[in-house]
Design a protein around this nucleic acid. Structure first.
Length: 594
RNA sequence: GGGGGUGUAGCUCAGUUGGUUAGAGCGAUCGCCUGUCACGCGAUAGGUCGAGGGUUCGAGUCCCUUCACUCCCGCCA
């Protein structure tokens, strides 16, 4: 027999009564009754109550042990009397009478309790992550993550995908996020970059003829953190397929996500076939390219109304004349909501930096009229027109915002969330997936006024390649798509451009000449000219998938050893200083800002 | 880079209009307790009120600066 344990802490039940057992684990809790003591022993699998009384010579020794000490216990399994059965734990029908014990690992006074549902400051949780990870909730989250990943691996293999590793030390690319750089000792003055995603490698794998690839790939981007975005590194289910069209990728990913979410969550799926929303529709109806479809509120554009003679809301009319637009959100049957409901939302909008949200409620006595601070500015005909455009009915309220398109999208999108929350319109027990499709190939940078790739420069433009109008680059759509779930962007992907001439052409629109493309993307562009198959793929974010499945709002709750918001690892003390000698070997000199 | 929130005992927090010696629960230490499962009871120790400066007879509390953590904006092909 193993010298540490004969059973795990979740294993023993009535059938073991009378048996001698050996258990090892952490002391989760001690309840000391003076001459009788209960000790909850915990391991990865569960908890077993152990018991000892003062007739045992070890009694006084065991009374003195710190919680979280690791011990092994020799004892006998006892039946519990009916009234002492604990239904909360799997081993609650029995207990182990301690005959002897051994201390395997001592424990100092704890900086934070393990056995507690209390919330703790992240600083202390991250510094003592190894203790934090012993706690039930996060321990289970991390186990869930492991199970999800192995399930996905299995499914991908079954679907005929091959798993490959790609380099971690690679070259810096000019597009996209900030790179993490690694100085090269053997090539003084030169740097590797950690991959932001294995984008070029996976395309090269297709050119190499492997047909279907996937990888649970680490990705590194040196950008600031958010609740749903780790600083530094995260994982994607990176996949790529040859000889496919957009629909083929959709079919694979939909199947995978549906089976994963059905297996690991009890929440309902709102759609068994993911709806497809075009990028431009998403921005109009939801103000965002990551709409939360659990939220029934829809944004409508009613700019036209404010060019009418019988509308006298001069502030908006004036703004509309100078190119602003007016969009609104209709809330159903809110005529009886108190004034404070509306004013709170207006105040909230002002706090968000907008000029506020105007509102009125549609009512009817002899005829239809608008009630509220700005109601008097609308004629009956104008109101009817608004009702027709927005499907609003008597008793509904209309919230309006007026601004330049981009700002307007932002505030209406936020307002959509805010109002839905206030009205409790979002069903938390649902996953609402959708595809966002037809992204534009290019967009204009507002500051520099330059044309830039809006997403991935390697995406294939839509339409007949011979007939694309390159004179109007902003009108070119790409076979570029995202998956969104509950307002969280889960992945983005594309059918790739495998035609070198077309690639040069598109890069030239974004301001890169042939030489620059050859330099920056030498591996890729070279490979594409040696017989590249049409191919495409996508890369769902693993951390966010697990976050949704674990019902967590913060990505650190599903990350084993996360960094804090300033990209520091408080446990390992990274990043840290390095010696002069290390710098010298790398031909580096520090020039720190004061 | 910008905005919001938080910072008081090892941990979680309370602390009124500025007023005597800054409190509670958990944890720790010591004692009592033979059926608990958030065991119970009693006692003890534990504080640079994040830091620095200012106003004041007097600051945990008001003002300024600064630091840390966090949420958001920017950023994230």
């Amino acid at each position: 027999m193993n010298k540490y344990r004969s059973h795990n802490c979740n294993e023993l039940n009535k059938s073991h009564v009378g048996k001698k057992v050996l258990l090892s684990g952490w002391i989760n809790k001690i309840r000391d009754h003076g001459n009788l003591l209960f000790l909850d022993l915990r391991d990865n699998y569960g908890i077993t109550q152990c018991i000892i009384d003062n007739e045992n010579k070890n009694f006084s020794k065991i009374e003195k042990i710190q919680l979280e000490t690791v011990i092994s216990i020799n004892g006998k399994v006892l039946d519990r009397s009916t009234e002492t059965i604990n239904k909360e734990i799997k081993t609650g029908e029995i207990e182990v009478s301690i005959e002897s014990f051994n201390i395997l690992g001592t424990c100092k006074e704890l900086p934070m309790p393990i056995f507690s549902d209390q919330e703790y400051a992240e600083e202390i949780r991250l510094k003592y992550r190894f203790l934090d990870l012993r706690r039930k909730k996060i321990h289970e989250n991390i186990i869930l993550r492991s199970k999800v990943i192995s399930f996905i691996r299995n499914e991908m293999s079954n679907l005929g995908f091959l798993e490959f590793q790609t380099p971690i030390l690679t070259s810096s690319s000019p597009e996209g996020a900030r790179d993490f750089l690694v100085p090269s000792r053997l090539n003084p003055g030169k740097f590797y970059a950690l991959p932001q995603a294995p984008q070029q490698f996976k395309q090269l794998i297709m050119v190499s003829g492997f047909d279907k690839y996937f990888q649970i790939a680490p990705c590194f981007r040196d950008e600031d953190a958010r609740a749903d975005r780790s600083p530094g590194e995260f994982y994607q289910l990176d996949l790529e397929m040859s000889f496919v069209e957009q629909e083929d990728v959709f079919n694979v990913v939909e199947k995978l996500l549906i089976s994963t979410f059905k297996k690991f969550s009890n929440k309902k799926l709102m759609f068994n076939k993911f709806p497809k929303i075009t990028y431009s529709d998403a921005l109009l109806k939801y103000g965002s390219d990551k709409p939360d479809l659990r939220n029934p509120l829809i944004i409508n554009d009613i700019t036209d109304i404010f060019t009418r003679e019988d509308v006298s809301f001069e502030i908006f009319k004036k703004l509309v004349k100078t190119g602003s637009r007016v969009r609104c959100i209709v809330t159903k049957s809110t005529q009886d909501k108190p004034r404070s409901f509306f004013d709170n939302i207006d105040k909230w909008a002002k706090d968000q930096g907008a000029s506020g949200l105007a509102y009125f409620t549609i009512e009817e006595s002899d005829e239809i009229f608008a009630k509220g601070p700005i109601g008097k500015f609308f004629s009956r005909e104008a109101l009817e027109k608004i009702m027709e455009k927005t499907q609003a009915k008597v008793g509904d309220s209309v919230f309006l915002a007026c601004d330049k398109q981009k700002e307007l999208e932002k505030i209406t999108s936020l307002a959509r969330d805010k109002i839905a929350k206030d009205l409790d319109l979002i069903d938390e027990n649902i996953f609402a997936f959708c595809w966002v499709i037809d992204y534009p190939m290019f967009e204009r940078d507002e500051q520099t006024n330059k044309i830039e790739f809006s997403h991935n420069p390697f995406s294939m433009p839509q339409g007949d390649i011979g007939k694309i109008n390159f004179e109007k680059p902003l009108d070119i759509l790409a076979y570029q798509y995202d998956i969104v779930c509950n307002g969280i962007e889960l992945s983005s992907g594309a059918i790739r451009n495998h035609i070198p001439e077309l690639m040069y052409k598109l890069f030239s629109i974004a301001g890169y000449d042939k030489k620059q493309v050859d330099e920056k993307f030498s591996g890729m562009i070279n490979a594409l000219s040696y017989g590249a198959p049409p191919h495409g793929g996508i890369a769902p974010g693993i951390d966010r998938i697990v976050m949704l499945l674990a019902n967590e709002k913060n990505i650190r709750e599903v990350t084993m050893f996360p960094m804090n918001q300033n990209a520091q690892d408080l446990m390992m003390d990274a990043p840290s200083n390095v010696s002069e000698n290390q710098l010298k070997e790398l031909s580096l000199l520090l020039k720190l800002k004061k």
